[in-house]
Design a protein around this nucleic acid. Structure first.
Lengths: 338, 338
DNA sequence: TTGAAAGCGCTAACAG
DNA sequence: CTGTTAGCGCTTTCAA
């Protein structure tokens, strides 16, 4: 039989209100009774029922996350898992539970609406980096607490976390230039996405600041984040120019480029991808990449949300996560390829 | 202001019991009032409060999953995501929510205990394939509903789903033999794990049934599921024997073997991994692998659990998931390697 | 500092 | 078929 707060109260010879106070560590309670009640609790192995507490407090202490499952995001498994880890880490620290749901293309907002209207979660983290503002608006309108991963187009008090994609690209290009590279190729995809736009901006600015002329022949932007994009991109660029270093917007794209280099025994070009997936690490040669710390993104997204839920004032409504270049074999220009 | 069942009752001119009945689609209610109440519900935009319902029904309609985060499982991201997708798919169909938590090495059982004692979930799915029976016993003792992914050592009414690792290996070896292979190498890891034991059994049986002598020189079992294991394993096997086909217990192990083949320009050996991860697909040459359908494992695990929760009699307490060989470049013995 | 009592929003006997 | 009435287990005024 389940043991409730009443059982404890009876056994301890106090009212259940007192037990409740002990549970929530209320100030206004004598050390004596506190000790007494805690003993009983321990002895009986009493565990408060979360549902009842939730109902009484009108909060669930749980965070909802919606994992996008649109075509292609299959490739971001690594990233999503890392996000989830980060979220989980903060949640455990703060005593929150996490609910997840996969949003299929069509019913993604249905899932979100369900989650936030049925009172099963206190707030939501949207894992989608390229969020449609429809959902953001929906949540904002209802004043439902949420944070997005990926800077939203209009930052009007929306809570968000993101890398500074401009700076990431800027720093990377500067670093390459410092290492003697002058003709640096950039192969991207999804022109409309912020990730692309910010990174290409950083790329351009870095060239400018180093007095290197921007050359459209060195830039390619394909459709999908895929190895085919990499293959097609590098092929096209090489037909018009001769870079010494290549930046790919994603490791998968970099894999395509790497393949092309291998097939054509091109061994004098540096290659750097983004997102530091397993894929990059286990290629031959191993592909350098930029780690964007998905776990941190998740952790701070959760922190932003929880602070908001608990009315703790954050200095700001967003958080920028750092990044790091992971140097592997392809970082050098002269690579021993099979 | 939030609108409750009382508001609806008042507006519809009925009792809240009636509204509740309409909500749960009770039989014993006239079509007239049903329509009337539903209209009001729609008009007012009423959404029942899940927490209150949970408390009243003493069930939460949510499934808990614990994702193992011990060292090394990093490499199974793909697999876990697929499991989660499958679970999510069934859950959405049946109207269940899903709660997840990462179990760090030390506090994994703490997480589980918390989940099942606080009444936040109705049942648990354990994603750990090689489960410690400690946790299983704990849950079984408390009669807390759960299912494990991966056949437990002792199948005493525990609910579980798994691939038939014996059969997978058996079929694969038979297939290779049918294709003319006679010297088939098996490179595994984690000797104590069921996965290894079952597959090696299947391997042996297939040889036996095809009148091929089992040769210990063709078998290697390393420590970790890693590319190093693959490298070390194939090196050792090749020093003693000369297989025409190599089976690796995991894609990551296969990657190591592939690397060795590439480095040494070995192009006359077939290579097949397990788990069909992205890793295998994007190697050069692309590595053949056995798809084990993580999503199905998750889906049926959830189905088993939900049926149990809803007292729907399943024919059996477990479910075997099929598998499929994914043929890629390394399936052929003569491979064009870079 | 503690207790009594009124909910939180919904479900489920039990009557009618 | 529908309403009344207890709860579900906990929190939180309001008094004492």
């Amino acid at each position: 039989m389940k043991i409730t707060i009443n059982d404890v109260a009876k056994a301890a010879g106090v009212s259940k209100a007192t037990v409740s106070r002990v549970l929530s560590n209320s100030e206004r309670i004598s050390d004596d009774t506190k000790r007494k009640v805690n003993d009983v609790i321990k002895n009986m192995g009493y565990i408060p029922n979360a549902t009842a507490r939730n109902l009484a407090k009108n909060s669930t202490k749980t965070i909802g996350i919606v994992i996008p499952m649109d075509a292609g995001s299959y490739f971001y498994n690594d990233f999503y898992i890392k996000l989830m880890q980060g979220i989980s880490s903060l949640a455990q620290k703060k005593g929150y539970y996490i609910m997840y749901a996969f949003g299929n293309d069509k019913d993604e907002d249905k899932v979100i609406k369900d989650l936030c209207s049925k009172g099963v979660v206190d707030g939501i983290i949207m894992l989608k980096t390229e969020q449609d503002d429809k959902t953001i608006n929906y949540l904002a309108d209802r004043k439902f607490p949420f944070v997005v991963i990926g800077k939203p187009l209009e930052d009007n008090n929306v809570l968000w976390v993101d890398n500074d994609n401009f700076k990431i690209a800027y720093d990377l290009v500067c670093e390459l230039i410092k290492n003697g590279h002058k003709k640096i190729c950039f192969i991207g995809a999804q022109e409309k996405w912020m990730v692309y736009q910010e990174r290409i901006k950083g790329y351009k600015k870095a060239l400018e600041d180093n007095n290197i002329q921007y050359d459209t022949n060195l830039v390619y932007c394909g459709e999908e984040f895929s190895d085919e994009t990499g293959l097609a991109g590098i092929k096209e660029v090489l037909s018009k120019s001769d870079p010494t270093a290549v930046i790919a917007i994603d490791d998968l794209v970099a894999v395509g480029i790497n393949k092309y280099f291998n097939m054509n025994s091109i061994r004098d070009k540096a290659l750097i991808g983004f997102n530091n997936t397993m894929l990059a690490n286990y290629q031959a040669p191993s592909i350098s990449s930029v780690e964007i710390y998905g776990d941190k993104l998740g952790y701070y997204a959760a922190e932003l949300l929880v602070n908001h839920l608990e009315k703790i004032d954050d200095a700001s409504n967003y958080k920028i996560i750092d990044s790091k270049i992971i140097y592997r074999q392809t970082y050098n220009s002269i690579i021993k390829r099979q």
